[in-house]
Simulated scan of single mutants.
Amino acid sequence: MTAALGLGSAQFGCDYGISNLRGRVSEDEVRQILQYAAQCGLKAIDVAPYEGDVERILGRCWPFPSPFKPQIRSVRAERGLDWVESRLKRSVEHMGLARVGVGMIDDASDLMGPQGDALWARMEKLKAEGLFSRIGISARYEDAPVALAKRFKPDLIQVPTSILDQRLVREGALEALADMGIEVQVRSVFLQGLLFTPREALPANLQPLGPQLSRIRRHLLETATDPLHAALSYALNLKGVSSVIVGVTTAAELRAVIAASDRPRPDLAWHAFAIEDPIALSPALWHADLSDDPRVRERRSVICAA
């Protein structure tokens, strides 16, 4: 299963994740993580320009020669397409590379705006010039990834899916994308560590979800299933998915992830772990002011129904 794993780099450039108590990863630890990832055959490294100084950190910490195929993300398009192109080229330069594996549109709303077609044409130009080998789109559930794929026909599409967030699985979107010949990559398989976070440590906006999360963890305990193993097994065995991006803060965590990914898939009622709370499934809302948000009323009915 380890061939299907890729590595996220958000933790290398900033404090990221609800369950991350260590904060930003030190460069020594980044080197150890990358070295172990290389030894285990991981190839994809997901890199975004807004994650601190992560590109230069990676450039200083790659094992040599680097076996990885990084995938870089675009900045937002409001400053123009020349800026998008310049920043993509700078990302490659900062990492000390001549080219990368994938160039990815980071925010699908840029493709749905007035510059969408021109932005995609610019990405195709950079692919033809050899800056990256493939073009991808990072999409959210709300972006309707199947419709996006039909319009732009990317080589790769990355979407959030997890044991807690099963919306795209339930709707058949992942299989539909794969049937179109598109590589499907899954991110947020731990939903920023929500499955591992004790009830008392949840942000205020997630406190109403505490009882449901406790029930999920209790069910895993009763079936003698480690939450890490369950989350990875769910993502790695999804039909149509070719790669899964995970984030870690230490080499020890990566060893645990790889060990869990190599274990047999447990026999669980996977649908029972899905949550429907619109706030919990949108990490950007976890610390937001929701006092006047209609989703607060919506979540009450959903949680009560659960």
Rank of each mutant, 00 (worst) to 15 (best):
89 K>L: 10
116 G>S: 13
119 L>R: 05
273 F>K: 01
149 A>T: 09
280 A>D: 03
136 G>P: 02
2 T>Q: 11
106 D>S: 13
203 P>L: 11
33 I>K: 03
19 S>R: 00
44 A>E: 05
54 V>Y: 03
213 L>R: 00
282 S>L: 02
62 W>H: 02
3 A>R: 13
32 Q>D: 15
233 S>I: 03
237 N>D: 09
277 D>A: 07
56 R>N: 07
291 S>Y: 01
72 I>K: 09
267 D>F: 03
257 V>H: 01
233 S>Y: 01
48 A>I: 09
246 V>C: 11
49 P>F: 08
65 P>A: 12
138 S>Q: 13
99 R>E: 13
155 D>Q: 10
101 G>C: 06
123 M>G: 04
90 R>A: 15
100 V>F: 04
99 R>G: 00
130 G>S: 07
251 A>I: 08
132 F>N: 03
122 R>D: 04
20 N>R: 10
276 E>Q: 14
16 Y>S: 05
164 L>R: 00
135 I>F: 03
72 I>H: 00
163 I>V: 14
91 S>K: 08
1 M>R: 09
127 K>G: 05
235 A>S: 13
194 L>H: 01
297 R>Q: 12
148 L>H: 05
50 Y>R: 08
260 A>V: 06
153 K>H: 15
112 M>S: 12
184 V>S: 02
86 S>F: 06
96 G>N: 01
26 S>W: 00
90 R>G: 04
16 Y>E: 09
200 E>T: 13
127 K>Q: 15
84 V>D: 00
290 L>M: 08
168 L>Y: 06
177 L>T: 09
136 G>Q: 04
45 I>C: 08
6 G>A: 11
37 A>K: 04
176 A>L: 08
286 W>S: 07
233 S>H: 00
19 S>K: 00
110 D>H: 07
27 E>K: 10
250 T>W: 06
288 A>F: 10
87 R>F: 05
261 S>C: 13
50 Y>V: 12
272 A>D: 14
267 D>H: 10
